[in-house]
């Protein structure tokens, strides 16, 4: 099968490759550019551990074909910290103890980021609803929800 030329922006860098037409975005990120922060936990779209943000929308990258994101702008967990400063969500996850084994963490943070980008001050109910897109096996979600609310409050108070 012939490969397809794909180019997109990922974490503010433009990349271009020849990819297999049946390659998933998760494979491309992990295998071609070593962005291993996105995890394959189920491979079937059920858990959200591979969530990345594509043109503002959180996507399960295990269900996306790389050719589909040609020309898109992608953010992965590796792209959140800017100029050596962690994203408020990353700080909040640390400070609130929302991280245990860490395997779901990047997907959780990306899901939360997409939420805060479209809704600056979500209610707790809204946070829970959004975060119910992702599975965590360790935390019971309490500290994850707290972290997202905390990050939102810090972001709004900071303007």
């Amino acid at each position: 099968m012939k490969t397809i030329k794909v180019s997109f922006r990922v974490n503010d860098e433009t990349v271009a490759f020849q990819v297999k037409p049946y390659e998933t975005l998760l494979e491309t990120l992990r295998e071609r550019i070593d962005l291993i922060g996105s995890k394959e936990a189920c491979g079937m779209g059920a858990c959200g551990a591979c969530t990345v943000i594509v043109d503002g929308i959180p996507l399960r990258s295990c269900l996306v074909l790389t050719p589909e994101v040609n020309g898109a702008s992608i953010t992965t967990v590796e792209g959140l910290a800017k100029d050596g400063n962690l994203h408020p969500l990353q700080e909040a996850f640390m400070e609130k103890g929302a991280v245990q084994c860490g395997f779901c963490t990047s997907g959780m943070i990306m899901t939360a980021k997409a939420l805060l980008d479209r809704n600056k001050k979500p209610t707790q109910k809204e946070v829970i609803k959004t975060m119910s897109s992702n599975i965590c096996r360790c935390t019971g979600y309490k500290k994850i929800v707290e972290a997202v609310e905390y990050a939102a409050s810090r972001r709004t108070s900071a303007g």
Binding site: K39, E78, G97, V99, G102, I109
Partner: peptide, 23 residues
């Protein structure tokens, strides 16, 4: 004390390595 776990920085930045990440 409620300290920030030592392993959490690598995990929130996606840098923590798990077995399938090794190359």
């Amino acid at each position: 004390k409620r300290v920030v776990r030592s392993d959490s920085l690598a995990k929130v930045t996606g840098r923590a390595r798990y077995t399938a990440d090794l190359k």
